[in-house]
Design a protein around this nucleic acid. Structure first.
Lengths: 193, 193
DNA sequence: AATAAATATATATTATAAGATATCAGAAAA
DNA sequence: TTTTCTGATATCTTATAATATATATTTATT
């Protein structure tokens, strides 16, 4: 890359990772082919503005032209104000759907009602909790696991595994929300009047 | 324009105007052909990222990727904090040079010493004053007028005209610096800690 | 009204992005 | 181990940006 726009591709790569999207996911959203995204992220293509716009729009980002002098101020805003980016809405919806399917199947089976209750509660937990972008990957894995579960036939081992992985995830998320309270960056370092 | 990036071309057009640059000037600085700049500013071309970068770099701008949520905050910064963008340094240098030439010629002629004094004083005024971007156009015109003057043969009429136009410009600039004091936007609406 | 400056178009050539699609290698999960 | 997921490459066609250059059109300036 000669024209120093690596920071753009890096930013997009990061944003994509934060949302837990694969290049293929982003490809679907943005309409660009996955191959193109890969090339852009690696700086082996000089993409057109429209492609760039498609990419960052799909990631909830906007391009702003700012005078060089105020770049630090802008960057500080972006760092400090940005609410801990929450998980991708589509991913969350996917998770809820998968969880509901599993819950329904469990209810139909009518065995291990305790586990059913636990998972129901977890479903509510999902409603309440703002899932930090940091854990998107774990969350995505868990969702995929759910999705696979519902197609397979249920057996006790699988339900055990589900409970186990769910507890793991919950622990991760709860830890995160604790630490975010102490996080000095969670309070903005400026104020607008 | 289908890909909604008019605000980018508009920003560049504006920045260019603020610096008092013509498309040809910008072309020279950025290395892009004037025709390309025209097409971009009119949204009839989907330029590549490298071209965009060349353009905004030549204008002292940077491209920042900003989460949609904080776009208003960033725009407010750019509007309010941006120090009243000063005139292009090259243009200023050009003006000083032209003025000096004229001063020397006047000195050599050794007539109308009062006018000579006035212009000398104005030369110092230029050193002190931060010329608002708003008046770049007038300033550029004045500079060009000076440049034309020095090649022509001097006569009293021309010197009169020079004084007149210089006074006009000075008034404009002084008015500007007055109003900027009262300008509510000249004080930033936020503070960084 | 005439001239000049700035901007918008036009043309022709070359380079390369876009797009569709397939494949490959490595990592992760089963 | 086998399968699935992910990211990087490759190939081919088509569309269009880049570039140089010229010219027209619009806008200031004298």
């Amino acid at each position: 890359m000669n024209y120093e726009s690596h920071h753009l591709s890096a930013a997009i790569k990061k944003a994509r990772a934060n949302l837990g999207l694969s290049q293929r996911d982003l490809s679907e959203r943005s309409g660009l082919p996955q191959a193109q995204i890969s090339k852009f992220e690696n700086g082996t293509v000089d993409i057109r503005l429209s492609s760039l716009v498609a990419l960052f729009r799909a990631l909830g980002l906007e391009l702003e032209l700012v005078p060089r002098q105020v770049v630090p101020a802008v960057q500080s805003i972006v760092k400090n104000i940005t609410p801990r980016s929450t998980i991708d809405v589509k991913l969350l919806a996917r998770a809820k759907m998968a969880l509901n399917c599993v819950l329904q199947q469990l209810a139909r089976l009518n065995q291990s009602p305790g586990k059913l209750e636990y998972l129901k509660e977890y479903s509510h937990f999902l409603e309440r909790t703002q899932i930090s972008a940091i854990h998107t990957k774990s969350f995505k894995r868990w969702t995929k696991f759910l999705e696979r579960l519902k197609t397979d036939s249920f057996d006790n081992k699988k339900i055990e595994l589900l409970i186990k992985r769910t507890e793991e995830l919950r622990n991760q998320l709860e830890q995160a929300s604790d630490s975010s309270i102490q996080d000095p960056f969670s309070r903005p370092a400026y104020s607008l009047d």
